[in-house]
Simulated assay, not measured.
Amino acid sequence: MNRLAKVTATSGIALSLVLGSGVVAANADEAPGSAEAVFDEFVDALGVSATTDAALTQRFDRLSDAEQERLVDAIEEDPLSVLTITAGEPTLTSGTATTAEPAVARNSAPTAKRVSRSALASAKTAAVRVAGGLHVQTVASNPRYTATYPVNASLFGITTGTFTMRYVFEATSTAVSRNLECTGWFTGAAGVWSISTSQSNYVSGGLGSCTVNYRMSFAFKGSFFSANKQQQLQYKGTRLASASLKNI
């Protein structure tokens, strides 16, 4: 078993299998610190909460000296490689939506201009009578659904950050009819990660798709490590067709 697998065996699939990293090497003349000092600097760079910081430090202290050294070697080579990725199960919640058609105004008082029977019949067909006021037609759309898809990045099984996607669409039980929202964001390393996102979505043949791309940069010990990631959800009506997070 390689050095990374030994350290992260209890945490799941290594993030390095999912993320590709571009690395700018640190100064070769920089003197290495102790394993504990390097790990503390890494946790500080992650920007996690004090509670998470304490939990990570406690787990690191439980490792043997050899395990600590192997972990620190991996961190100094590429800090992203020691994180693990765990995809949650997408959840789908429902709600109803209505779309208001343009209002058709008609005053109940008589007018001097005569209205043809055909025009009057068309107005009656297109509008719902409201006594003494406006005539407004409201057409019910397909039910609205919101899908949420969290993916956690973790170390020692402790979450250090989360990629979250939200996909809102209208659908019948068998087909998506319209996309309303497709967004994604990362939380957990505030102020340290530099992350930009781009989104795309489409509906084709009743299949609705939402895709979010993350472009990330992480600074550690004078080096910059980058990773580009794509998160995607697809629904065929209310049935989940696919959910993925992959390197791009």
Score class of each variant (00 low, 15 high):
Ala54Asn: 03
Leu207Ala: 11
Ile158Val: 12
Thr162Trp: 10
Thr238Ile: 04
Val48Gly: 10
Glu76Met: 14
Asp73Cys: 05
Leu245Asn: 14
Ser34Gln: 02
Thr174Ser: 13
Ser49Ile: 01
Ala31Phe: 08
Ala9Cys: 10
Gly95Ala: 15
Val130Ile: 03
Ser223Glu: 02
Ala55Phe: 04
Tyr167Asn: 01
Val82Arg: 04
Ala219Ile: 02
Asp44Ser: 14
Ser116Thr: 14
Ala153Glu: 09
Leu17Lys: 08
Leu180Phe: 08
Thr187Arg: 13
Leu134Asp: 11
Asn142Ser: 13
Ser34Leu: 01
Thr51Lys: 14
Ile195Met: 08
Gly22Cys: 00
Ala127Ser: 13
Gly237Tyr: 04
Val72Pro: 00
Thr111Val: 14
Ala140Leu: 15
Ala171Val: 01
Ala241Lys: 14
Ser11Ala: 14
Gly191Ile: 08
Leu207Thr: 11
Ser34Asn: 02
Phe218Tyr: 04
Ala126Cys: 08
Phe218Met: 01
Gly20Glu: 10
Ala190Met: 12
Pro79Arg: 09
Arg239Asn: 12
Gly157Lys: 02
Thr51Ile: 10
Ala87His: 03
Ser194Ile: 13
Ala45Ile: 01
Ala189Ile: 09
Pro102Ile: 04
Glu170His: 07
Gly237Gln: 02
Pro143His: 07
Leu63Met: 05
Phe220Asp: 02
Ile85Trp: 00
Gly205Lys: 01
Leu56Trp: 09
Gly12Ala: 09
Ala131Tyr: 13
Ile75Phe: 06
Cys182Asp: 00
Thr238Val: 07
Asn228Thr: 11
Ala127Leu: 09
Phe186Glu: 03
Ala25Met: 03
Gly237Arg: 00
Trp193Pro: 05
Leu207Pro: 05
Thr164His: 03
Ile195Val: 15
Ala175Asn: 06
Glu67Tyr: 05
Gly222Phe: 03
Arg59Leu: 04
Thr57Gln: 15
Val104Glu: 09
Pro102Gln: 01
Ser198Leu: 06
Ser122Ala: 15
Leu134Thr: 09
Leu56Cys: 10
Tyr214Cys: 02
Asp29Arg: 06
Ala14Asp: 06
Leu71Asn: 06
Ala100Met: 05
Ala189Thr: 15
Ile248Met: 12
Thr197Val: 04
